[in-house]
Design a protein around this nucleic acid. Sequence first.
DNA 1: AATGTTTGCGCAAACGTTTGCGATAGATAT
DNA 2: ATATCTATCGCAAACGTTTGCGCAAACATT
Lengths: 386, 386
Amino acid sequence: MPRAKCPKCQITERILKSGIIRDKQRFYCKDCNYHFTLLHDGKKQKNETKKNNRPTSLKDIAQAAGISISTVSRALNNHPDISLETRNNIKQLATSMDYHPNILAQSLVNRSTQSLGVIIPNLETTFFSSMLGGIQHIAAKSGYRVVICQSDENHMTEVANLQALMNNMIDGLLICHTLYTNTFDHVKMQMNKGIPIVQFYRVSEELKLPKIYSDDENGAFQITEHLINKGCKKIALLLGPKAISINNRLNGYLKALRMHGINKDENLIKHVDFSYNAVIAAVDEWLNLEPEIDAIFSISDKCAVQIIRHLKNKNIKIPGHISVCGFGNEYTGEIVEPQLTTFDVRTRLIGEAAAKLLLEQIIDKKTKNESIMIDGKIIIRESTRK
Amino acid sequence: MPRAKCPKCQITERILKSGIIRDKQRFYCKDCNYHFTLLHDGKKQKNETKKNNRPTSLKDIAQAAGISISTVSRALNNHPDISLETRNNIKQLATSMDYHPNILAQSLVNRSTQSLGVIIPNLETTFFSSMLGGIQHIAAKSGYRVVICQSDENHMTEVANLQALMNNMIDGLLICHTLYTNTFDHVKMQMNKGIPIVQFYRVSEELKLPKIYSDDENGAFQITEHLINKGCKKIALLLGPKAISINNRLNGYLKALRMHGINKDENLIKHVDFSYNAVIAAVDEWLNLEPEIDAIFSISDKCAVQIIRHLKNKNIKIPGHISVCGFGNEYTGEIVEPQLTTFDVRTRLIGEAAAKLLLEQIIDKKTKNESIMIDGKIIIRESTRK
DNA sequence: AATGTTTGCGCAAACGTTTGCGATAGATAT
DNA sequence: ATATCTATCGCAAACGTTTGCGCAAACATT
């Protein structure tokens, strides 16, 4: 190994090895009392190309104009301290140099990123993606970006997403919980950070946060009452997993039964995850009941459509024999035959309301505790007409 | 107005007004040659609460441990320069102080934000949202966040979104163009910034960028040939607006006709925007043709479903009288009666492939020019069975 | 001419990281 | 004991902004 040469005094004697530093051999020149390592020759080149590739900064403009960075900043931000003349000059120079502010740096100093975080169970069902559409729409109107994380109906993913988003990435959070989320410590831990949070659609009463409710109890009541008015007496109710506030749909169902003097029958109420097999199994059990059921109210349109197809395969007339109702008003309910009676929860409006409520908090800088219910509307179609 | 008091010498005489600065009256004390303004009394309080509200930083940990910031940083990043002992101590202290790195600051110095940008025409149709799901899935696996902008099929919005995203917010961009995007200067302007871009689904040959194609031409060919094999001879083709590469579906259609010796008939090819009225109008025109058409091939499943319902309203038998095909394999095609023959373009796979291709470029730090085609699959259902 | 006021700009700190290099106390080799 | 090496840490610059304050020159008022 050739002896190292000191970059200062250029001698090769009296050079000592001085440990390995950052994976590079280090030397020490006794003459000039100088530590050094052998530089990669690519370094200088790298430095040059780096400079050239960088987007123009305030500094570049300042240098080009021969003024200070602060003046450039103020000029571009229309600060009154800067004369009209220099302001115009600088603006012109900035556009000619294709300047665009570095949002990261701005966010760092302003402590605001102009973006909202969304945690949502799923992106691919229209039910959720239309909420997302509403959020996006409102956010964009106020100049906010949207960072989306999908929890995939997985609680641990929700926790991880929350963690990731809350580290200075976002000015506010919109969250719609997983079906299986029943502990909320991960949210509680974030509630003192000063970043407003709004729960939407699937909310938890355990958390003192503003919420956007869908009109579930009333909707379920209306659907059930509609079935009763159509003469149904044994109305089966298909619910999702036992979780969160969604199950106040059960309350609406029970309330309608009560008001019309129909006794609750535990056999007619089933909880399932939303898998196809579980849905079909539940329906088949009901079909074996005596006396026969005359209606199925599914908490989800998707399941309701599956049920309709299943019943048709079994040559069971809808609504002649059994009426079927869904919940949510997805597009498929309009396509299936017979068309599905359902309850429109106005998912897009929910998203919009959530985003609005969040933005209010961000802009006014105070945490509200207001909660909003989005009214829905029953949609009566063929699957319950007799 | 009471005279101002100099905060240094505490006198009230010899105080001069000295202009308005930052919207506050400014004073000058002749005695101590000192400029000052009347401070809002809330300032100190604000300063305190601010400090308390802030998340813990490296500085806080360093102060608590009595060491330097750099040591803390290196310890938490497992840098070998730090002894195991201090490293463990610092890590423990960090978790006990609930430290989480400020991603903005990291991004600023590392010049990387660990997030991908997506520009997509629409969030609310399953067709696009499932692509988005694929993107999200792959990005999350590599620890990347996703920032989503929806262009709403509006060219100007696409341009604005692009501008906003490319200012240091993202490490790479996935873009699916608007139906009406036919100039691409806004993209060209961003191509030299060193941020990799991948086009997906709706791509433009005008841009020298890696692309993810769907198997459109082949798909249209297969659908058309399938119709011909079923005995159809007058096959109407419903296309979207004249734009981008999507229209090589037209090529597939024409190729199939050619191969089977069927002459092209201009009357059978119509371009429409995807509005309901335009679709129905096109179909009605076709229905008046002589000799009668025996098939309709719609470029979009959504329109195909509308067409089926329209034909059924007119008591036209499907496929007995007219066969109907769609393109895309949306869920509604399975629900509608008769079930829709269509072509599965595997939207989710397209999203995944796009994200993978982008991530490769980001991680390898070199811009590729590879393009990928995602194979689709024809799905034959009732709407073409005779 | 003297004094008071305003305008227009620059300096430097701050935001929270990462990292090249300097520095020193102890370990090891001679 | 001395010369050499190593391990471990701190200093300070850098990333690109915003902003409180200082200050000189220009302007306005006596």
